[in-house]
Design a protein around this nucleic acid. Structure first.
Length: 882
RNA sequence: GGAGGAUUAGCUCAGCGGGAGAGCGCCUGCCUUACAAGCAGGAUGUCACAAGUUCAAUCCUUGUAUCCUCCACCA
C-alpha cells in the first residue's frame, strides 16, 4: 500500500467550502428513511442583521446534536429559516429612508414593502451563507421564512381559530405605545430602565375654595387627563374628604376625591392623581370607579387637543417642563426634587414608551397558559438546565393578555375586513370579498399587522406544513429538542408551547436547551452598539469553522454565559491541527504496508488499552449528549484523541513501526487505522469538516463520515478489556521522567533504569513485554525489570510509585561534586534570606504596622526559603550516597 | 420588593460529600525521524466569608459580602 500524503499544514480553507457543497450535492442533510425521527427547528434569525457569536453558539450546538443523532441512524431533520422581525426590519428600512429624507408614508404601503423585501433578501442571503460557512447541516430543502405563503396561511388559521374559540378580541385599552415606531407593543417588548427624573408635589385646590391638597407626580404634563384624586379608604387622615371636589389646576375642570385601596398607605402624601389614559394602575382604578379616560397625547407623542392650547403639538418631554413652569408661576408647585425611577423603553428603538389608550387586538392568555403549565407538570417538556423552569412557570402564572396588533406595514395583515357600508366585521381565513350581511363588496381590510411573535409561535409546526396534514408533519412532529438563549424564553419558547398545546394538543418539543449568552472578556454582552462583538466569519477566516464550533462547544457549560475573545478560539484550532498532524504521521506509515484484519487474540495490553479508551469515550459522550453536557463531550473527545491516542498510544506504536517485523508492522498500522477511523466518526459532530476531509483519505473508510455509524459503547468489550490498564506503565514512565527533569538531565543522556515491582504488582509481565517501549519513553539506555532483587541499585537515584520502585543511574550523567557544590551554595543563600525574613516577622513593629498583605507576603517568602533548604539538603544527601 | 445565577490557579472556566482539575499564560529543558499550533517536566489555590449538619464539606443547610441577570413595581 502507498502512503497517503496530507498537506504539511492544517489549512481549513483548503477544504471546508468544498466539503460543504459536496454534502449538499449528495443530499446528506436530508432526513434518511427509517423508523422514528429526530427533529430540531432552528430559532429563526431576524432578517435585520447578520449572525453574531450567540447565533454561532446556538447553531453549533444544534449542529452537534443533529450530526450526532444522524450518525446513530435516526431519520434526522433540522429545519432552518428566518424571521421577518416586524418592527426591527421596518425600522431598518425607515432608517434607510430617513437618510434620503423620506418617510414610509412618502412611498406608500406597496412601495415600502417592496423595499423591505429587498432588505429581507439581502440579509437572508448573508445569513444563509453564514450558516453554510459554519457547516450547519440543516436541510435547506426545508428552509422557511415566517412570511412564506405556507406560514402566512398558518398565521391566518391560528388567528381565525382563536377568534372562533373566543380567545381573540378587539378593544380599546391602555397599551404600551412606542411613539417613534408608531405602534403598540406587547408588555414584554418593553424594557424598564432606571432613569433620573423629577418628582413634583402639586397643589390641587378644593373646588369650594376651602384649601388644597398635595399630590405627587413624575409626569405633570398628564394632569390634563386627570379625572380624580384617590386616597386609601383606610387612611384616617382623609376619611372626611372623600367625595369632595377639587379644581384641576391650569384647567376649569372639577375632579372628585375617591377612595381606592390600591393607594399605598404611608407612601408620599397618600394622595394619587388618577390619569386612566396614561397609567396602567390608574386605568384599572378608573374602570373600578367608572371614570372617563382622557387621552392627552397624539400617537406621535405630542400633546393633543385635550390640553390647553399652548401645549398642543408639544412633545410630552418638553410639555413636562412647561407645565411644571406654569404650575410654579401660578403657585401650584409645592416642590420639585430629583427622583430616579424605572421607565419603559421600546426594545427595538429604545424610545420611551407611553401607556396609550387605543383600539387593539388581544389574545386571551390565561387558558392557554394553564395548558402550558400542565404540559410541564406532566413532564412533557423539560428544561436543560432545570432552573429555567421557575422562570417559565412564573411567567405563565402571571401572564396577561397579549396585544398582537401592530401599527406597522411589514408583517402579516390582520385577517379582518370591515364592511364600509354596514359596518360588519369579517374574520376570515380567505381574503374576504363580500359582506355576508349586506353583500356589499365595499370591504376594507384592517390596516394593522400582527406581532412578529404571532407567526414565530407557530414555527415548530408551521414549518412542517401545518395547518395542512402533510407527510412532513406526520413524520417529523413533535420536534425533539429546541436550543435557544434565555433571553427569548418569554417571547418565543413559552408562546410556542402555548400555541402547540392549543392547536395540536401536544407540546412542540420535549427538551429545551437553554444556552448562555456570549460575552466579551469584560463580561459585557456582545452587541452592535458597543462594537465589542466578534464576527463568526472573522473567526472562521482565522481559525476555521471546526475550530470555532469545537471551542464554543468546549466552553458551553450548561447554560452558563461564556466570555471569549478572538484568542479563545486557539483552543479548537490547536486541537484541529493536532488531529491533522497525527493523521499525517499515520498515513505516512502506510507505505509498503498491508492492512490486515485485526486479530483480537494478538492484541497486547497496550492495544487493548486504546480500544478500551475508545469504548469508554463512546460511553461518556453518549451520557454527556443525553444530558446536553456539550462541554463534557468535547472534553472527552479532546483528551481521548490527544492524551490517550497521540501522547501514549501513537508514541508507543513507534517502536513497532520502526523496528518491528513486517507482520508486526502490518498489524500495528492496521490497529492505528482502526482507531483513527473510529476517532473520525467519534469526533465528527464536533469537528465536522476536518473529520470528513480526513475520513475520505483513510484506506479503511466507508462512505461519508457524516452518515457513518457513530461509535457505540460495547459492554462486552468493556469486560474483555477490563484488565487493559496502562496506568501502571504510565506511572513508571512519569516518575523516571520527573527525576531526569528535576536533575536537569537532557534527553541526549541515555541512562540505565531498573524497575523493581512489588510482589503484589500484577503488571510484571506487561512491563517485561513492553521493555522496549519503556526504554524509549524514558530515554533510557536499558530498562531492567528486576523481579528477584538481584540488581545492585545502591548507586542509583531511587523513586517510588504505586506497586514498584524505579532506580535511575544518574551517576554518569551529572557532575556529582559540582552539583553538590551548587546546591550548598543555594542553601547558604536561602538560609541568609530565611534569617532576614524571620527577623522581620518577629519584629512587633512590623507585625502591628505593616499592611496585612505585606505580612502575608513575608510569611510565604519564609516558607519558600524553608522548603528550598529542605529539598536541597535532601538532594545532597542522596547524591552523596551514589 | 421577589426570583435565579456567579464567587475554585495570573486569565477563561469545569468539577461537586471522601485524592483540588482543564485550556491559556508562566518557569525549566528539548526543533526526539506527525505536529514549536509541538514534546517532556514544573510552580501556582485557607475552592468568597462565617456558622451548622456529617466519621468526612469546595460540594449539603443557614446567614453574610461582592458581582450579574430576570421579573414586578408606589404616584
Amino acid at each position: 500500500m502507498k502512503a497517503v500524503e496530507l498537506a504539511k499544514a492544517y489549512n481549513p480553507k483548503d477544504f471546508e467550502d468544498r466539503i460543504y457543497s459536496e454534502w449538499k450535492e449528495k443530499g446528506e442533510f436530508a432526513p434518511r428513511s427509517g423508523e422514528g425521527h429526530f427533529t430540531v427547528v432552528m430559532p429563526p434569525p431576524n432578517v435585520t442583521g447578520v449572525l453574531h457569536m450567540g447565533h454561532a453558539l446556538n447553531n453549533s450546538l444544534q449542529d452537534i446534536i443533529i450530526r450526532y443523532k444522524r450518525m446513530t441512524g435516526v431519520p434526522t431533520l433540522w429545519v432552518p429559516g428566518t424571521d421577518h422581525a416586524g418592527i426591527a426590519t421596518q425600522n431598518v428600512v425607515e432608517r434607510q429612508l430617513a437618510k434620503e429624507g423620506l418617510r414610509r408614508q412618502d412611498l406608500g404601503r406597496e412601495k415600502f414593502l417592496e423595499r423591505t423585501w429587498a432588505v429581507k433578501d439581502k440579509h437572508h442571503n448573508i445569513i444563509k451563507s453564514q450558516l453554510e460557512k459554519m457547516g450547519c447541516s440543516c436541510d435547506w430543502d426545508h428552509e422557511r421564512f415566517t412570511m412564506d405563503e405556507g406560514l402566512s396561511k398558518a398565521v391566518r388559521e391560528a388567528f381565525v381559530t382563536l377568534y372562533e374559540r373566543g380567545l381573540i378580541y378587539k378593544g380599546k385599552y391602555l397599551v404600551n405605545y412606542c411613539p417613534k415606531c408608531g405602534t403598540a407593543l406587547a408588555d414584554d417588548e418593553v424594557e424598564y430602565e432606571n432613569v433620573p427624573g423629577k418628582l413634583y408635589d402639586v397643589r390641587y385646590p378644593y373646588a369650594d375654595g376651602s384649601g388644597w391638597i398635595t399630590v405627587a407626580t413624575t409626569r405633570p404634563e398628564t394632569m390634563f387627563g386627570d379625572v380624580a384624586v384617590a386616597v386609601n379608604p383606610e387612611d384616617e387622615r382623609y376619611k372626611d374628604i372623600v367625595g369632595k371636589k377639587l379644581r384641576l389646576p391650569l384647567t376649569d375642570r372639577e375632579i372628585p376625591i375617591i377612595a381606592d385601596s390600591f393607594v399605598e398607605l404611608g407612601f408620599g402624601t397618600g394622595m394619587v392623581k388618577i390619569t386612566p389614559a396614561h397609567d396602567p394602575n390608574d386605568w384599572e382604578c378608573g374602570k373600578r370607579h367608572n371614570l372617563e379616560a382622557i387621552n392627552v397625547l397624539n400617537p406621535d407623542g405630542t400633546m393633543n387637543d385635550n390640553c390647553p392650547e399652548k401645549y398642543r403639538g408639544v412633545p410630552a418631554q418638553e410639555a413636562r417642563k412647561m407645565v411644571a413652569e406654569e404650575l410654579k408661576e401660578k403657585g401650584y408647585l409645592v416642590s420639585e426634587k430629583d427622583y430616579n425611577h424605572e421607565v419603559g423603553h421600546c426594545y427595538r428603538c429604545h424610545t420611551i414608551v407611553e401607556p396609550y389608550l387605543s383600539e387593539q387586538w388581544f389574545v386571551k392568555m390565561r387558558g392557554m397558559a394553564d395548558k402550558a403549565i400542565d404540559a410541564w407538570k406532566k413532564g412533557d417538556i423539560q428544561f436543560y438546565p432545570k432552573r429555567w423552569e421557575n422562570t417559565y412557570i412564573h411567567w405563565m402564572e402571571t401572564i396577561k393578555d397579549w396585544c398582537i396588533s401592530r401599527q406597522l406595514w411589514w408583517g402579516h395583515r390582520i385577517p379582518v375586513w370591515y364592511c364600509e357600508d354596514c359596518g360588519e366585521m369579517i374574520v376570515s381565513r380567505e381574503d374576504a370579498t363580500e359582506c355576508p350581511k349586506c353583500h356589499s363588496h365595499n370591504l376594507k381590510q384592517d390596516t394593522d399587522v400582527l406581532d412578529t411573535w404571532f407567526s414565530s409561535w407557530l414555527w415548530p409546526f408551521s414549518t412542517l406544513g401545518w395547518p395542512e396534514k402533510t407527510p412532513d408533519f406526520d413524520k417529523f412532529f413533535q420536534t425533539n429538542t429546541l436550543v435557544s438563549a434565555y433571553d427569548i424564553i418569554f417571547f418565543w419558547i413559552s408562546r410556542m408551547i402555548m400555541a402547540s398545546e392549543e392547536f395540536l394538543g401536544k407540546a412542540p418539543f420535549k427538551d429545551i436547551v437553554i444556552t448562555g449568552l456570549v460575552r466579551d472578556t469584560q463580561g459585557r454582552k456582545m452587541s452592535k452598539s458597543l462594537g465589542n462583538g466578534i464576527d463568526p466569519l472573522d473567526v472562521i477566516d482565522e481559525y476555521g469553522a471546526d475550530a470555532m464550533k469545537f471551542t464554543l462547544c468546549f466552553l458551553a457549560a450548561q447554560g452558563q454565559d461564556v466570555q471569549i475573545d478572538m484568542n479563545s478560539f486557539k483552543l479548537g484550532s490547536r486541537f484541529a491541527n493536532k488531529i491533522w498532524n497525527a493523521t499525517r504521521f499515520l498515513l505516512m506509515n502506510l507505505e509498503g504496508r498491508n492492512l490486515v484484519e485485526v486479530d483480537k487474540s494478538k492484541l497486547t495490553v497496550l492495544d487493548k488499552w486504546i480500544y478500551s479508551r475508545l469504548n469508554d469515550a463512546a460511553l461518556s459522550i453518549k451520557n454527556a449528549m443525553d444530558e446536553y453536557h456539550f462541554n463534557d463531550a468535547a472534553q472527552t473527545v479532546y483528551s481521548f484523541f490527544w492524551n490517550d491516542f497521540c501522547d501514549w498510544y501513537i508514541e508507543a506504536s513507534k517502536e513497532k513501526l520502526l523496528h518491528g517485523s513486517d507482520e508486526e508492522k502490518d498489524l500495528q498500522v492496521s490497529i492505528l487505522m482502526d482507531i483513527l477511523e473510529a476517532s473520525m466518526r467519534l469526533m465528527h459532530p464536533f469537528l465536522s469538516f476536518l473529520t470528513e476531509e480526513i475520513y475520505q483519505k483513510l484506506p479503511n473508510h466507508n462512505g461519508d463520515v457524516i452518515v457513518a455509524k457513530y461509535p457505540e459503547f460495547d459492554e462486552k468489550e468493556k469486560d474483555e478489556y477490563a484488565e487493559a490498564s496502562m496506568d501502571s506503565l504510565q506511572e513508571v514512565v512519569r516518575v523516571v521522567r520527573a527525576v531526569r527533569s528535576s536533575l536537569g538531565i537532557g534527553p541526549e543522556k541515555k541512562l540505565k533504569v531498573v524497575v523493581r515491582p512489588d510482589k503484589s504488582n500484577k503488571y510484571v509481565d506487561f512491563y517485561k513485554s513492553e521493555v522496549k517501549i519503556l526504554t524509549s519513553f524514558m530515554g533510557a539506555s536499558t530498562v531492567t525489570i528486576d523481579t528477584d532483587g538481584s540488581e545492585d541499585t545502591s548507586k542509583a537515584f531511587p523513586c517510588h510509585g504505586s506497586g514498584f520502585e524505579a532506580f535511575v543511574f544518574v551517576r554518569d550523567a551529572i557532575d556529582v561534586e559540582g552539583e553538590i557544590k551548587r546546591l550548598e551554595g543555594e542553601i547558604k543563600k536561602a538560609e541568609a534570606n530565611l534569617a532576614q525574613s524571620m527577623k522581620k516577622l518577629e519584629n512587633e513593629n512590623f507585625i502591628t504596622h505593616a499592611k496585612p498583605e505585606a505580612i502575608e507576603k513575608e510569611k510565604s517568602k519564609k516558607a519558600e526559603f524553608e522548603e528550598k533548604i529542605a529539598k536541597s539538603t535532601e538532594h545532597i544527601a542522596l547524591l552523596k550516597t551514589l
